[in-house]
């Protein structure tokens, strides 16, 4: 969620029980603008918190002019001092996927892959790689995974220009209530995968300036989102069941939308059994 609208936005997603303490809110209010200045971001998003056993990571994302470009990610343990995370590589993601269990809350903690899966680790050692992965790398990979899988925006809130870059739509005035209750009105803010596989017939209705992303409609497994009207029907809240803790909010007919993650950084692999 946008750092500027953080206090109000946190209230809107608070129905899940997670939030920030007044101290952290105040700290973010002070440190995020500085972050924007120091790193020359056009915009800063507060991404959320990954709860570890001994501490929590607070994550922020910085955006450049092209909103679809890879975002810079920063983490902080106290919401004041921020450190830049390296960009996620595929290898990192692949390794992190093998890790299970909770985050520790210590970025330098080393997971031993050997413990996790002896066979895989052997392969890795044969390749001459260390069977060790730092928690920082796991953090990067997890954020990347979450952003990819469940980072969502309402339809029309971002536009693709003829030059190919993606911007916030200045004219976005919010989804109507009817639309806001449909999953097809929300898009994954990531490189589209299913879009290319659509048939011509399906593509015919799409507007290239707004419909350049995958919608949530066909997410697998079906039913991996809950859509609820909360606060007396004022705000639409989407919760991901795949990444428990990810909450998206949108106030219909306004520009207020955003997502935030308050969770343990673990994917809910049991989802098919739980629906």
């Amino acid at each position: 969620m946008d750092a500027a609208s953080l206090p109000g936005a946190l209230d809107l997603v608070a129905s899940g029980g997670a939030g920030l303490s007044p101290e952290k809110r105040a700290a973010l209010g002070a440190s995020l603008p500085l972050l924007q200045r120091d790193y020359r971001f056009e915009r800063v998003w507060f991404w959320g918190r990954i709860q570890g056993l001994r501490g929590a990571y607070y994550i922020a994302e910085g955006l450049g002019p092209d909103r679809a470009a890879p975002r810079s990610r920063l983490y902080s343990l106290n919401c004041v001092e921020w450190s830049l995370l390296p960009p996620a590589s595929e290898e990192m993601v692949a390794q992190a996927e093998k890790l299970k269990g909770r985050f520790q809350g210590d970025p330098s903690f080393e997971y031993e892959l050997a413990e996790i899966k002896a066979e895989d680790a052997e392969k890795l050692t044969e390749d001459g790689q260390e069977p060790v992965i730092k928690e920082e790398a796991r953090l990067v990979a997890t954020i990347e995974q979450i952003d990819k899988a469940v980072g969502i925006i309402p339809r029309g809130s971002f536009v693709k220009t003829p030059l190919g870059s993606v911007h916030e739509n200045r004219n976005f005035e919010g989804l109507s209530l009817t639309e806001a209750k449909k999953l097809s009105s929300y898009f994954h803010l990531t490189e589209p995968v299913n879009l290319k596989n659509k048939t011509l017939l399906e593509k015919a209705d799409l507007d290239p300036s707004t419909d350049f992303l995958d919608s949530l409609e066909h997410d697998i497994p079906k039913g991996s989102w809950t859509v609820q009207l909360e606060k007396g029907g004022v705000v639409v809240v989407l919760r991901s069941l795949l990444w428990l803790g990810l909450t998206f909010y949108h106030v219909p007919m306004t520009k207020q939308y955003g997502y935030v993650y308050f969770g343990t950084g673990e994917k809910n692999l049991d989802l098919p059994f739980m629906l």
Binding site: D11, A14, S15, A18, G19, L20, S21, K24, K231
Partner: peptide, 12 residues
């Protein structure tokens, strides 16, 4: 609970 960032919004 709010001191630890836990809880629902105030009006709820």
């Amino acid at each position: 609970f709010e001191q630890a960032g836990i809880g629902l919004s105030k009006d709820e």
